[in-house]
C-alpha cells in the first residue's frame, strides 16, 4: 500500500500588494503591502490629479517559481 500522506509540496512564493486608487480620475497605483494597510485606508496623493487616493484592494500574487 502506497503512502498517502502528501509530502511538503513546493509553494510558489506569494507577494502581497496594495492597490491605491484615485476616486476622482481612477488612476491605480500598485505597491508592496506595508503593515498597517487596509482596504479604504487613505493612500498617497494621486500623481495625476493630486487628489487623495484610497487603498482599493490588497491581494497576493504568485511569482513564477524560478528554476
Amino acid at each position: 500500500m502506497m503512502s498517502s500522506v502528501p509530502s511538503g509540496d513546493k509553494k510558489s512564493k506569494l507577494l502581497v500588494y496594495s492597490v491605491e486608487e484615485c476616486p476622482v480620475c481612477g488612476q491605480k497605483t500598485k505597491r508592496a503591502f506595508a503593515v498597517g494597510d487596509y482596504v479604504t485606508k487613505d493612500g498617497a496623493k494621486c500623481t495625476k490629479c493630486g487628489n487623495q487616493t484610497r487603498v482599493a484592494l490588497v491581494y497576493a500574487e504568485g511569482t513564477k517559481p524560478s528554476g
Binding site: 506569494l14 502581497v16 484592494l57 490588497v58 491581494y59 497576493a60 500574487e61
Partner: peptide
Amino acid sequence: ITVMRKEIAEAS
C-alpha cells in the same frame, strides 16, 4: 483563510 489572491480581489 489565507491572504486574498489576485483572482479573488479582482472579482470584487
